[in-house]
Simulated assay, not measured.
Amino acid sequence: MTPAQRTLVVTNDFPPRQGGIQTFVAALLERRPPESLVVLASRSPGWEAHDARLPYRVVRRPTGVLLPTPGTARAAAALAGEHGCDTAFFGAAAPLGLLAPALRAAGVRHLVGATHGHETGWVALPGARGLLRRIAGGLDVLTYISEYTRSRLAPALVGRTRLAQLSPGVDVDRFTPAADGAQVRRRHGLGEGPVVVCVSRLVPRKGQDVLVAAWPRVLARHPGAQLLLVGGGPLEADLRRAVAARGLERSVVLAGPVPPARLPEHYAAGDVFAMPCRTRRGGLDVEGLGMVYLEAAACGLPVVAGTSGGAPEAVRDGETGTVVGDPRDPAAVADAVTALLDDPARARALGAAGRAWVEQRWSWTTIAATFADLLTPPAR
């Protein structure tokens, strides 16, 4: 992309609102030349202060949810014309990719839309599948985050557009083995024994309930072990009841959600990372990739993963961690965790291998180069 060319980014998912898609989109834009970007987004609390710190222009529609309405279409087309945007990027193609015809009419000739994993549920439902096919037909490129999501999307979208992989990346300068978890250990009274950490939203798919059910088996072999659950969500009350019912209050800590800037120290508080994710609702509730595995690996931790969706792609089974064949089985999860706690030297070796793999395959340097290529319009 030459300096004179600009990309219009249309996204509902944008900071300061928190979430995986928001983080993904912001990280992609952070690595683009600021003069090449203009963003159209929704509003969320704190947006004025947030946008004032950005080096590129952000226009906020007066709504908490950006939808492909006629008003949004007019605003997007006006911005594209004002800034001479040759390219548009939809932070989440479904449903904002429906704006593609309006942007083409405004002179945008190359349109790229991203998917993030939940769209694999869309293709299982006739109405949503038809909408996704319509969206794909208006785009030049539709991205996917993992081979699993591609395998689900491709049969429904064959011939509609070009599919290309664009996975989230890891900031290897922030998520690093040098991160210090000592303060987190002190704050939560974790002591000097082994700590198993899980960083994720507290929802059934992520498997924290199975970790709690497995924990008595882990304690039978490692009485001084601690389980640190980081994150918030609708499963929290159930988890607290399960911890109390099993008498695990002294060895299971629910830390609640933490700001993104403090995530590295929470990973670093652990010796093993575990999130035995599982697919639910007949395949409608599935893990698209599992960035937490890669962030943990970047911090030098061996990981224990489940089999849901693209999660196994974020782990080299037996090299950077373990993929549990039945993540619903507390005994199987306990066996995977205790195997790593039993052999600290092997656990450290897996963590080191994970760090090297993330640096080579999943760093933002690699992902940013892919994004730049995808944004480049074909030669006229």
Rank of each mutant, 00 (worst) to 15 (best):
R160P: 07
R160W: 04
T161N: 10
R162V: 15
R162M: 03
A164V: 07
A164T: 14
S167R: 14
S167F: 00
D171K: 08
D171G: 01
V172P: 06
R174K: 12
R174N: 10
F175C: 00
A178N: 08
A178W: 01
D180S: 06
G181C: 00
Q183Y: 05
R186V: 12
L190E: 12
E192P: 07
V195P: 07
V196P: 03
V197L: 08
V197E: 12
C198E: 11
V199H: 03
S200D: 07
L202F: 03
V203G: 03
D209K: 08
L211H: 08
A213Y: 07
A213M: 01
V218Y: 03
L219R: 15
A220S: 11
R221Y: 05
P223T: 13
G224R: 15
A225Y: 11
Q226D: 14
Q226E: 15
L229H: 13
L229I: 05
L229M: 02
G231I: 00
G231R: 05
P234G: 11
P234H: 07
E236I: 00
L239S: 10
R246V: 05
G247F: 01
G247T: 11
R250W: 08
S251F: 01
V252C: 07
V252P: 08
V252D: 10
V253G: 13
L254N: 14
G256L: 01
V258W: 00
V258E: 03
P259N: 06
P260N: 06
P260L: 00
A261F: 02
R262C: 07
R262K: 13
R262M: 09
L263G: 04
H266I: 11
P276I: 05
P276D: 03
P276N: 04
C277L: 00
C277Q: 06
R278T: 03
G282R: 10
D285T: 08
D285F: 02
D285Y: 12
D285V: 12
